[in-house]
């Protein structure tokens, strides 16, 4: 898959595969094109070349390039953002309920007349959202405004919101950025737990190498839009190409 902006090739024939239940990390120096790749997958950008295929648990295969972001989410891909993008003025519960949005059906008529099924759907949505908050450990903040949450909790709320859309693949863009070691460790446990209980595969972009190495089954390394290495954490750690990309030429020898 490739992505051009004008004359600039931000992602160059990147080829990436995630199997069911895997935790895959995408790493690389700043500006390597990792987030651009995320934006292509989730429909914010349309890739210039190449294809993105998904195989939802229900079976079948679907090509998703060029679909609108909300369609991609409906199909089961959910993401978080590198710079936190919560709905600041809404409560924690409402944030998660927005995630439920695409799984709910009530429309204008439902809003106005409030027939029983709309009322029960709303109640169910609130319940489901609360359960998700419990899993993530945010239930004590349920009625607080999102902007009043501590930083680490905001990051976790983003994950909760993404989970509410019932994804089979969760895309995390630097979930540990700005966290202290203790919070990072908690996040580590959380991600592993999610894989077990929620049946999701996870693709994450991360700079915290300790987290990446302990979590991921496989790692892809990008630099200048290209894939420069791929493999298990142990192999990547000692790969000269990767070390060169991160530290520069002279350290290799």
């Amino acid at each position: 898959m490739s992505m051009d902006f004008g004359g600039l090739r931000a992602v160059d024939r990147l080829d990436l595969m995630i199997h069911r239940g895997e935790i895959v990390a995408l790493i690389g120096p700043n500006g390597a094109g990792k987030t651009t790749f995320f934006n292509c997958i989730t429909g914010l950008y349309t890739p210039t070349e190449g294809d993105i295929h998904i195989h939802p648990p229900g079976g079948g295969s679907k090509r998703i390039n060029g679909l609108k972001p909300n369609r991609v989410t409906e199909l089961g891909l959910a993401r978080t953002f590198q710079n936190i993008r919560l709905f600041q003025q809404m409560t924690v519960l409402e944030n998660v309920m927005i995630g439920r949005h695409c799984r709910l059906r009530s429309g204008i008529a439902g809003a106005v007349f409030r027939p029983p099924h709309t009322v029960s759907e709303e109640r169910q949505a609130a319940m489901d959202s609360y359960r998700i908050l419990e899993k993530i450990g945010l239930e004590s903040f349920v009625n607080d405004l999102a902007k009043n949450l501590p930083y680490g909790a905001q990051r976790r709320l983003e994950i909760a919101r993404a989970l509410a859309t019932e994804p089979f693949l969760l895309l995390l863009d630097e979930p540990a950025a700005g966290m202290n070691p203790h919070e990072t460790h908690e996040l580590d446990q959380l991600i592993l737990r999610l894989r077990e209980t929620e049946n999701v595969s996870i693709l994450l972009i991360e700079h915290d190498m300790k987290l990446v190495m302990s979590l991921s089954d496989r790692i892809y390394v990008m630099d200048y839009g290209r894939k420069i290495a791929e493999g298990a954490p142990g192999r990547i750690k000692n790969d000269p190409v990767v070390i060169k990309a991160y530290l520069g030429e002279e350290y290799v020898a």
Binding site: L44, K68, N70, T73, F81, R85, F87, C102, R161
Partner: peptide, 14 residues
């Protein structure tokens, strides 16, 4: 609040 996040969470912007 946030148009991009809103879309990414499955809300049909249009």
């Amino acid at each position: 609040e946030d148009e991009i996040a809103c879309q990414a969470m499955g809300v049909d912007k249009t």
